[in-house]
Amino acid sequence: MTDRHLVTIQVTGRPATFATAHEKPWKDAVRSAVAASGVQPRDARFAVRLEFRLVSARNANEVWDLDNLIKPTLDAMEGVFGARAWRGTPQPADDRVDRIEATKRLPRVGEVPGVTIDVWVIEPDRRA
Rank of each mutant, 00 (worst) to 15 (best):
G88D: 14
Q10S: 07
Q40R: 15
V7P: 11
V11Y: 00
V109A: 14
G38R: 12
A102R: 09
I117E: 08
A19W: 01
R58Q: 12
A21T: 10
R4C: 03
V112F: 03
E78A: 10
W26P: 14
L6W: 01
I100A: 05
A44Q: 14
E111C: 04
R14C: 00
K24H: 10
I122A: 14
D98I: 05
P107L: 08
K27C: 09
I100C: 07
E51R: 14
T2H: 11
I9W: 05
A128Q: 13
D98H: 13
I9R: 03
A29R: 02
V97T: 10
R42T: 08
V112G: 04
Q40S: 15
W26C: 11
V119S: 10
F81E: 10
V63D: 12
I100T: 11
G88Y: 03
V39Y: 00
G88C: 01
L106D: 02
E51C: 08
G13E: 01
L106A: 14
D67M: 11
L54R: 01
R96N: 15
D125M: 11
E101A: 09
E23G: 04
R99P: 07
A35P: 00
M1R: 10
P41C: 15
V63S: 13
A57C: 06
V63N: 10
M1A: 06
I122C: 07
T89E: 13
G13Y: 00
T103D: 10
A47T: 05
A33V: 06
R127S: 09
A21K: 09
R127P: 04
A47K: 04
Q91R: 12
E23A: 08
T17D: 02
G114K: 00
T8R: 15
D118G: 03
P92Y: 06
W64Q: 03
A128F: 08
R14A: 01
L106I: 03
D43G: 09
L74G: 05
G13M: 00
F18Q: 08
F46I: 11
L54M: 07
V121A: 13
K24S: 13
G82E: 06
A93M: 03
A60N: 06
V11E: 02
V7L: 06
S56Y: 02
K71Q: 13
E101S: 09
E123N: 11
R45M: 11
A47D: 03
